[in-house]
Design a protein around this nucleic acid. Structure first.
Lengths: 345, 345
DNA sequence: TTGTAGGCGTTATCAT
DNA sequence: ATGATAACGCCTACAA
């Protein structure tokens, strides 16, 4: 305690917080004493307690951090989020949503249950995220959900997934495509790849469901294949199956629910000797910068990923200020690239 | 305060921490009272203060979070780190090392100065990281540095960069390559791409310097080109320059300091009509899973990225326990892929 | 402009 | 097995 040893008891607080009126002489004395004792400023933990704020916002992903950051769209969103909470002076605490393993004889693991967070941002929507939601609400902490349905009065940051995907589908329809396959993001949190009968089963994952609806508005009878995850490799694997059907049955276009999947489809198609877009049209979703994808420019829906993050940050700030934060629905922009063209013949 | 209202004053603590011997009857009474007041367990902030631990480990990257996660090697390392600090029960707080913008009239931004962290992991080594280091040491917080030189008694987690890179170079030498170009990671934190006279200038970035040394041990006269960042696109750009020299001068092999750069070189070479590895051999560094890179399998040095993260986590745990943590040097494994072959003719 | 007092919600220690 | 007490280090009134 600088004050006890040094000079004044708690005028020091004013000096360090900088918000008080302190005479230069006193300030100097305090600072001198502080450096004497090598006191390095207020203990953030004590300040947290006193203020009732820790300056930390939790970000909850499903599964491994590694897989969450595999898709650039998440990365960009995180950048936006970091920016969005900056005015709040908050840092981002990474949290996973799976059951915290028991630490033997140690402190309980930092989970949603116990993490010193002022607010929480939930990303995506596995089944477990619903559980996470309960935890957070029980704690009475403000929550914002990105790309997921939290029901009730919980602010959502989302996209016009259905409308946007409909645009891409219409684009293909206008070009004249009739045999179209829809390549979706994972159907459930379990992430199994495979064909689905979309008229009977609904995807569990919100994003998947909404984008699928948009595509099916235009192509109600399109075949539907779910990828195991949103990566180029998963796209390649899926495309091998999709394009592997009888030549006559093979689609002339694939509507992929993410840019990574679309990139995989294109790669697989090219390896098969197909030309893009002459032999196969492919649309993506996200509009992310695909590292190393030139010379292709995906026909895709550009989503404002960074803006989504920033909006989540702002929503958190408002809730922390006691306001209610509205849900926000961002609009994706259709961008025509060079991966779509009229079907052959 | 559950205790004040409910039943016992602070036996409640025992109930919630679970570490005390409490009779079932009492526990039930406490729990009942808690749910009555919908008290959801101890306030982590108060617990932090009392315990002197916040259960948070800071991870400092340079620049935007987004660019940090662009390279899968960082992502994998983060996974390892998350795992490594798990037994500690700690979460990971993402921090940037750049000057925190002033928040007008708000709380000071969560920076290294004020974040409620028990320990800090510094990743990489810009000039600013050195500064971050000062901050942290002033605060008396345990620090571990990954892939950077912190001097003094600060535990380092690093690779045998020089030796490993020498292996790749020797491999090329054995194959018979004589005209080799070295494509390095950024030379300085400023990230400008371009040729360098390696016999006069030393890279500022540790990793770049060490890997370069290994390559130059075998090819002292190799041309050296620094990429602007570790991405496929930067590799493509660099390769356009490197391969753009007079045909007779063009290298028969490129030693790239990261897999992403190597992938870019290969992509650019293929676009130029070169066959890999017949017309050009390329080696990478990292051994990360390159999404969408099949059928190529890079000849590369596999680094134990996840193990690095885990080791950092363990080091942090030891330091928090009062021990000194040793620096650790991991070994990379040379892995021959299908991107290297003897030069033509 | 500076000092004093009280309490934020815990948990560790000690006594019962 | 439980209760009492005392900090943990700060911040914000309010008093001087």
């Amino acid at each position: 305690m600088a004050q006890a040893a040094g000079v004044s008891p708690s005028t020091a607080s004013l000096v360090f917080s900088g918000r008080g009126r302190v005479s230069d002489a006193t300030r100097d004395r305090v600072l001198a004493a502080a450096s004497e004792l090598d006191y390095t400023g207020p203990d953030p933990r004590a300040a947290s307690l006193r203020r009732g704020r820790s300056g930390v916002v939790g970000v909850v992903f499903e599964g491994r951090l590694g897989s969450a950051f595999l898709d650039p769209v998440n990365t960009v969103m995180m950048d936006g989020l970091a920016e969005g909470v900056a005015p709040l002076g908050a840092g981002l605490l990474l949290l996973r949503d799976d059951a915290p393993a028991e630490t033997i004889d140690g402190p309980p693991p930092a989970s949603l249950e116990t993490a010193p967070v002022d607010a929480v941002v939930l990303v995506g929507c596995s089944g477990r995220l619903t559980q996470s939601l309960d935890t957070v609400r029980r704690r009475g902490i403000p929550v914002v959900v990105i790309e997921g349905d939290a029901g009730d009065g919980i602010p959502r940051i989302e996209l016009d997934n259905t409308e946007a995907q409909r645009q891409a589908a219409s684009h293909l329809r206008t070009l004249g495509h009739e045999r179209v396959t829809i390549l979706t993001l994972p159907w459930t949190a379990e992430r199994v790849a495979g064909w689905h009968d979309a008229s009977r089963e609904r995807p569990v994952v919100d994003v998947t469901r909404d984008r699928l609806a948009g595509a099916r508005d235009v192509y109600p009878d399109a075949a539907v294949f779910a990828a195991r995850e949103s990566t180029i490799d998963a796209g390649v694997e899926a495309a091998r199956v999709i394009l592997g059907t009888e030549p006559g049955d093979a689609p002339t276009a694939v509507i992929a629910q993410s840019d990574l999947l679309a990139a995989g489809v294109i790669r697989a198609a090219v390896q098969r000797g197909l030309r893009i877009p002459e032999d196969l049209s492919v649309t993506g979703f996200d509009g992310v910068r695909l590292d190393g994808f030139a010379p292709y420019v995906l026909t895709t829906l550009e989503q404002p990923a960074a803006a989504k993050g920033r909006a989540a940050g702002k929503a958190v700030a408002r809730m922390l200020a006691g306001d209610v934060a509205p849900s926000i629905r961002f609009t994706c922009a259709f961008r025509a690239g060079n991966t779509t063209a009229p079907p052959r013949g």
